[in-house]
Design a protein around this nucleic acid. Sequence first.
RNA 1: GGGCCGUUAGCUCAGUUUGGUAGAGCAGCGGACUUUUAAUCCGUUGGUCGCGAGUUCGAUUCUCGCACGGCCCA
Length: 497
Amino acid sequence: MAVGKTSSIIEERQNKAEKLQAEGVNLYPAGYKIDITSSEAIDRFGEMDEDTLEQESDSYAMAGRIMARRDFGKASFIHIKDRTGRIQAYIRKDRIPPDKFSMFKLMDIGDFIGIRGRFFKTRTGELTLLAEDLSLLSKSMKSLPEKWHGLTDVETRYRQRYLDLIMNDSVKEVFVLRSRIIQEIREFFVEKDFLEVETPMMQSIPGGATARPFKTYHNTLGMDLFLRVAPELYLKRLVVGGLERVFEINRNFRNEGISIKHNPEFTMLEFYMAYATYEDLMTLTEELFNHLLNKMFGQSVIEYQGKTIDFAPPWTKISLFDALRDLGGVKDEIFQAKENAAAFASECEIAFSAKESHGQILTKLFDHLVEPLLINPTFITGYPTEVSPLSRRNEQNPDIVDRFELFIGGREIANAFNELNDPADQRERFENQVALRDAGDKEAQFMDKDYVTALEYGMPPTAGEGIGIDRVVMLLTDSPSIRDVILFPQMRAKTQM
RNA sequence: GGGCCGUUAGCUCAGUUUGGUAGAGCAGCGGACUUUUAAUCCGUUGGUCGCGAGUUCGAUUCUCGCACGGCCCA
């Protein structure tokens, strides 16, 4: 956008603003008493015939943004938009106070208007508010995007989300649904006697996930702090403290690339349940999603980007290795030696570093070969211990852990496991992570001695799970990009407009 | 970080292939119009064609670089 350019549209609006002020009109008055919203009006009067509507002698005050106007010399139809929808109003010069029509003539699409009047039906049967009085509530100095095509430029939609929300009703619907989804999740867990808690966003040791953190600094304490990559280690400290069922819905921050399914800050649900196992959490997760779908859509099947996803339980459960072999077409030898896995990954043109472990390469193979195939909800189990430093080992096979990841629509949605509560094993796992970090793995985890100390005091057998809320919202709103479900997605800084 | 595509009026888009500084619709402005629905009719304003450099008599157009965005890959 050019700098220093004077738009004639802005000049026109400034002229109008000055004229309005000269007439004694306050461009930005405080408040306005509203009697009814547009959807309430339509609910109450929309079905009435004209005669019945005429019996309704009350007048009502409404307010909203002018979205369209059709002028006829001494009269005008406008559409005003409020939080619930839009409604038409009819302004006639002979029905409003003498000075108000000239004021109305100086008002524009985009201005906020307050109208008091009576409802009637037009010839075409549209419920319309016939103005008896009107007020300017806020002057708009910029012209809104075009009424027919609206705003489609994705960059502007993300950078100026307010315009997107004004112009694209479906965008608003997504965020209304997002809010409802989170509300329902909250109620689901509160109903099951979970306690909602808030744990630190700023951590001196960033733990709980394999991810690179953002770094910041506290001036007074003179110390580095990291934005959390996960709340996990704090939530489990609370389980040690006797809060046997806790959950948190909050932001995590990961200093990684931005993509159609990654935003540097994203919303995570994590919950921990003492005495439960990861098998119990499978059932709980099935129940949670079916509760959500039932509340939102009244059915257990949804369409996501042209694919049908059926949430009816029970969901498929398959181990990582079985899935790789049966769905990914990987041969048994791949599981026997790292060299075989590495050779196969190269063959498939899947990039990996020589430093990566056998388990890391296997999970990479899984990401490329199997993950896109998992459309219906699928629990993948049996993850290698080396890629699960906070999970309890499987009793039959200590090389794998009691863990599942949940995939829906070809994407990872949740991650859950029996929590490692053996302090000696946990210390050892941290030490392995530190060794990886020293060897250059920037995503490897840090030693958290206090967390080990907490485990030394004793943590009950516990299972925990994290669910990516943005991805759930994407699924349930049929949104292709995470940016469509985050109000203000991260963008590169741009010069001031 | 790499590849491909895009950036023209407030908004939605043409145009540039074959270089000669740009068009439409909506919005705006002036006029007519007291039941319209993308109202209609008449007239009309508005653009350093993302930024910078190169080639050229001349670049919005060709070349290179940069910025921002989208998709794919990492």
